[in-house]
């Protein structure tokens, strides 16, 4: 379905000429990806200096599907569920597949879940991509259907919090089943959580992990972290969630998509 959509886009572009579509689509260099113009943004846990400048990059329009991930596993047997080294993936890894090299028909267009960070990283590398950085992901996650930065929009915030408040459904939705943001990126919220490249560079006060409770003896200079906007509770939830993860974890509600640096 994803490929069909892209093909249609290409066909129409060929018929109507480039530039007919929005700049977002016209500038998207890689298939299946969306070019995100960079910008200045203040992360929830900001450097003391304030906003960070983010160069332009490309992001997958959709989370990675089970079908795409199966293709990867076929090509890279070391990431098969029955061959992966436990140091890189826990026992939950791909446990929802009926077989190490088979998925259910309905899973094809569902986002892949139960993947470890190491596996997600390897998948992106195999595509010549990388996992998005936390800043890249959060930058795009601020966008609603109509605004690049909807982080101050109470309805947008509430929608995200409502989703966080719901338990993970037994069946994950299909790719594209939530919303398309102003950049043309789908499912940033509402489908599943996503790995980021630097998930382990998050530190939040609290007992998120028994071995990393926030303690000046455990963290050099740790007291210097302050939330830039404590009212943005959804961000806090995401940062806290990431800080509770280990790279080996496979979780039902955790998938990923890939990003790519672009040369300006």
């Amino acid at each position: 379905m994803q490929r069909l959509r892209i093909m249609t886009g290409l066909l129409l572009t060929a018929l109507l000429g480039p530039g007919f579509f929005s700049p977002v689509l016209a500038a998207a260099a890689s298939p299946g990806m969306v070019r995100i113009p960079g910008g200045s943004y203040t992360p929830f846990y900001a450097l003391k200096k304030g906003p960070v400048k983010l160069p332009a990059f490309e992001l997958d329009a959709y989370p990675v599907s089970n079908a795409d991930y199966l293709t990867f596993v076929r090509q890279h047997p070391r990431w098969r569920r029955d061959q992966v080294k436990p140091v890189f993936a826990d026992r939950q890894y791909l446990l929802h597949w009926p077989d190490p090299l088979r998925i259910l028909p309905e899973q094809a267009q569902q986002p892949v879940n139960y993947v470890s960070w190491f596996a997600a990283r390897a998948y992106c590398q195999a595509q010549g991509k990388k996992l998005p950085t936390q800043d890249q992901w959060e930058f795009v996650a601020r966008a609603s259907e109509s605004a690049a930065d909807a982080s101050a929009d109470p309805r947008f915030r509430q929608r995200i919090l409502d989703w966080y408040a719901r338990p993970t459904p037994r069946e994950l939705g299909s790719l594209g089943s939530t919303y398309r943001n102003v950049y043309g990126v789908y499912d940033m919220h509402g489908l599943l959580w996503e790995w980021v490249r630097d998930f382990n560079t998050v530190m939040v006060t609290g007992e998120s992990r028994e071995d990393s409770s926030f303690d000046r003896n455990l963290f050099c200079a740790g007291g210097a972290l302050d939330g830039a906007d404590p009212s943005y509770y959804a961000s806090y939830m995401r940062y806290a969630f990431r800080s509770s993860l280990k790279g080996q974890y496979g979780l039902k509600n955790l998938g990923f998509r890939c990003a790519k640096e672009v040369t300006p």
Partner: peptide, 18 residues
């Protein structure tokens, strides 16, 4: 990630880390 170490750049010259 393998060691379970978390770290974060907190200024131009300093990092907080486990």
């Amino acid at each position: 990630a393998l060691l379970g170490v978390q770290y974060k750049k907190i200024s131009e010259t300093d990092y907080a880390h486990s």
